[in-house]
């Protein structure tokens, strides 16, 4: 197991140590870089480092030397490549893909169920369902969608908080994209992480419900800023809430002046047609205007 160490400069990190024959008694276990642990430095012993000589950075405070290797690689680069590949697949199949995000309980699945009911027989809709551990949402939508691919994100390290492009690539490999017009990707309920990961959809949309508070756009600006459309859900509850719709809309406009906004009740169906029209417009413009939405 690794041990956590605090260094003089305040940084904390963990080392992998072989503790056999190593005396840790007493509190005076100092851990400067002049220590005598069994760090194997042999792996670098034979490497000529002249080629990096010009890159040597500041290594004051270190007993051994340090070289700086310039990298300049975007941390999302790998995900973005996979996202581009997904988008290319959608384009080749003539499918318009929408990444649907929200906090837990805002009504993504209810909105999808209502949307599928309205579009049934008009548009062939596929669903990628990103649940953390269960098939509950998928069960709610089964029978309504032309095709459905369930993507449990709980296989990894304690369950993922978002869908990434590779997960979506796995999900769409189980779909016949050629037999679809529209693919709705229901992301994991979370207003933070999904906003950072491009999954290859042409458009991003989110559901914000009126039970969540007017300040949500200011608290989760990245999510509210990346989306092309915001469905304000549960408006049938407005008479019973202190929610100030005008304030919410002003906050939304402050972080994202361009988003299309739809006032909807997925429960009663109120306002659903405008949302449907927006989805259909994505299909109409598919070949000409739908570019790569970052």
């Amino acid at each position: 197991m690794g041990r956590f160490h605090r260094h003089d400069d305040g940084t904390v990190h963990a080392h992998e140590h072989d503790h056999d024959g190593h005396d840790h008694s007493g509190q005076g276990h100092s851990h400067g870089h002049d220590h005598s642990h069994e760090h194997t430095h042999n792996d670098v012993a034979g490497i000529g480092h002249d080629e990096h000589a010009e890159l040597i950075g500041d290594h004051s405070g270190y007993q051994t030397g340090s070289e700086r290797i310039e990298v300049l690689e975007a941390i999302f680069a790998e995900n973005d490549l996979a996202a581009d590949a997904n988008r290319a697949e959608f384009d080749a199949a003539g499918v318009s893909a929408v990444n649907l995000m929200s906090s837990p309980g805002a009504g993504k699945t209810a909105l999808l169920a209502r949307t599928l009911a309205v579009l049934q027989g008009r548009v062939r809709v596929g669903i990628v369902e990103g649940d953390v551990e269960t098939a509950i949402d998928a069960d709610r939508l089964n029978g309504l969608a032309a095709q459905l691919s369930l993507l449990n994100t709980g296989d990894g390290f304690g369950g993922e908080c978002h869908l990434d492009a590779v997960m979506v690539a796995n999900a769409i490999s189980r779909l016949d994209l050629d037999a679809l017009d529209l693919l709705l990707i229901e992301n994991v309920g979370n207003l933070v992480c999904p906003a950072e990961f491009d999954v290859g959809a042409h458009r991003k949309a989110m559901v914000a419900s009126v039970t969540e508070g007017e300040d949500k756009p200011l608290k989760y600006p990245v999510m509210f800023r990346v989306v092309d459309a915001v469905v304000v859900n549960k408006i049938d509850l407005l008479p019973y809430l202190d929610f100030e719709l005008e304030l919410f809309l002003a906050n939304l406009k402050a972080v994202n002046p361009k988003a299309a906004v739809f006032l909807v009740s997925a429960r009663t169906g109120e306002g659903i047609e405008q949302w449907i029209d927006w989805l259909l417009a994505q299909l109409d413009g598919k070949t000409s205007t739908l570019g790569h939405n970052s």
Binding site: V44, T64, S66, E67, R68, I69, E70, V71, L72, I75
Partner: peptide
Amino acid sequence: EFTVTSIDVEV
């Protein structure tokens, strides 16, 4: 920005 700019390695 969200970039790995450089990596310091031991010599």
